[in-house]
Amino acid sequence: MNIIVCVSQVPDTTTKIAVGADGKTIEKNGVKFILNPYDEYAIEEGLQLREKFGGTVTALTVGNDSSKDILRTALAMGADKAVLISDSGNSDTFGIAHSIAEYAKTVVPDLIILGRQSIDYDSFAMASMVGELLSLPSISMVSSWTINGSSITAERDIEGGKEVIEASLPCVISAQKGLNNPRYPKLPDIMKAKSKPIDAVTGASVPARVTTVSMELPQTQRRGIILNDSEHDITELVRLLHEDAKVI
């Protein structure tokens, strides 16, 4: 099975965010970048499928030189190959989906796996966009699935339950937490991954379809009424919820 796993580099969740000089993106200086946590499930799923069905796992990212770190993590986990598609840095979600799709057309994978969202922009859009650009079926937020020949049966989370979905290979899926338990790369594999080649591909640049007008840090406009645990104060909280906030 020929599998592409798409990974992305994101700021560590605990990083403090500041607005950059352009007023539209974050200040990148001092920010620690990591492999998007959901992508670990995507890589693990690719590796497990390769162990079961044979084939190759190609880790792919759209980015710049600094993105090589996450490709090396994927290689250390066990990916066979790594591809870095260079990007102007100005691409929107569609532009990145377009670059992934253009690369996929050259290798014709059986399966493209992504994390359900990247934790920077949380768009949840990549699986559907890549699927659409390649005229392939896509299933997002897959929490469990089986592959039988070319048939796929998957479960995905919806409001108040789960959907059971049938589709067929080739296909694009995005991985939900719980799909598997991602392995930790072993130290010798981390060392070996440092000298493995990373294929450089030049991305096909397309005009952005959305543009950020401004970025700001949200101001909390909360009431901030902090009480203590006396019975008097708990009674007061209930009164406030009932009479002021009117939520009960």
């Binding site: 768009s123 949840f124 559907s128 966009m129 997002s140 989370d157 409001e159 959305v210």
Partner: peptide
Amino acid sequence: AANAAGKEIAPRVAVKLEAGYIPD
């Protein structure tokens, strides 16, 4: 709506119509 169904449909619709997509 940016719910389970909307988040799957909207990106595809945007690509089909060459439209900008603004999620969430």
